[in-house]
């Protein structure tokens, strides 16, 4: 066992000279292994410097802007939980009035998107504002202490959907937000995952190239709220995709136009097992066994309706999902 020595290159100099755009700077206060910080970093990197951000209340807003500091290197404005869509609409209208082409991004969590900010978002989509709305979906109100949201998956435990005699975690299903968004007949709506950086970049660029309202839902694991180690963030996000519970799809004008096929569908147990929020499903209890089957059926349903099983021998690879190459070449 031999460890190798540290570099002698001055670190501050290295940070200044990084050959990639940085929208979100180091020093933010996200937890260890935060999936949302990773996803927001990837989105802003792909979007580039000519954007402005409207950010709903939530973890992202809190951990990036501890007054008087900011981790953003982009124009950024905070809104309330309920009005990010409205704020972004106004920013876009103002830029348009000034004849500027700067693109507006709206960021919100699942609480600010599925629940509280949904009306303003729906209005923004309906009015056709030229905004990319990105929802970082960590499937509960993590910032306020892990309360259930309409995005929390069925059977997951939160502080307001505990497991006990009456219920095995959340009783209801995860809201199918992407279908609701797509039903606004917008030009582009897609899902992505923090585990697939190239896919995120592709979808951000694709959305920004479109004139009109676009929407991106990014599955962003929360180590604290989901109860897994910070080192497993990407692993857990990847398993969610690979078991079929979080399909990566693209919808244009409400029509399904592409999916990321699965190399081989993993059992949902593989995804659930590392997470404390599903721990109760692995106890010796017939209700637990039934809920596991229910979640497996939901995954199988997704695989079927979205056609996630590829037709090639190695469908995932032929789509170049996440193969690494010597020298860092990625497909996006």
């Amino acid at each position: 066992m031999s460890t190798v020595s540290e570099t002698t290159i001055p670190i501050a100099e290295l940070r200044r000279s990084q050959l990639r755009f940085r929208g979100l700077e180091a020093g933010h206060r996200a937890c260890q292994g935060c999936g949302q910080a990773l996803a927001a970093r990837l989105v802003t990197e792909a979007a580039g410097p000519d954007v402005m951000i409207a950010n709903a209340t939530g973890c992202l807003e809190i951990f990036t802007t501890p007054w008087p500091q900011s981790a953003w290197r982009l124009p950024w404005m905070h809104s309330l939980f309920e009005n990010t869509g409205a704020l972004a609409s106004g920013m876009e209208a103002a830029l348009k009035a000034q004849g500027k082409s700067t693109k507006v991004l709206a960021f919100g969590g699942d609480g600010g998107t599925f629940d509280i900010g949904f009306q303003a978002l729906s209005g923004m989509l309906e009015r056709g504002h030229n905004v990319l709305y990105v929802c970082y979906d960590n499937e509960a109100y993590m910032n306020t202490g892990i309360q259930r949201s309409s995005s929390t998956p069925h059977a997951a435990v939160t502080t307001t959907s505990p497991s006990g005699k009456a219920r095995m975690g959340k009783r209801h299903l995860k809201k199918d937000i992407i279908s609701i968004i797509a039903a606004h007949h917008i030009p582009y709506a897609a899902t992505a995952s923090a585990a697939y950086p190239s896919d995120i970049r592709k979808k951000v660029r694709r959305a920004l190239a479109i004139e009109g309202p676009t929407f991106l839902l990014i599955h962003s694991p929360c180590p604290l709220g989901w109860g897994h180690d910070g080192s497993q963030t990407v692993e857990v996000a990847r398993l969610a995709v690979q078991c079929g519970l979080f399909p990566l799809i693209e919808l244009e004008r409400g029509e399904l136009t592409s999916v990321m096929p699965l190399r081989s569908a993993r059992p949902v147990k593989d995804y659930l097992k590392p997470q404390q929020r599903f721990r109760h499903l692995f106890q010796d209890d017939t209700r637990a066994a039934q809920e596991l089957e229910h979640l497996q059926a939901l995954a199988d349903h997704n695989i079927e309706v979205y056609g996630l099983r590829g037709t090639n021998a190695d469908p995932l690879d032929s789509d170049g999902a996440d193969t690494v190459r010597r020298g860092g070449m990625r497909w996006a």
Binding site: V4, T7, R15, R20, A26, Q32, G35, G230
Partner: peptide, 29 residues
């Protein structure tokens, strides 16, 4: 997630092209 890995164009002294910025690395693994 923390922008704590920096890339070097030239080879870092440990033979890789990456340097950990321990000022910001939170140690998530």
């Amino acid at each position: 997630p923390d922008e704590a890995v920096l890339k070097t164009k030239e080879l870092a002294s440990d033979g890789s092209h990456y340097v950990f910025d321990y000022d910001y690395c939170k140690g998530c693994g």
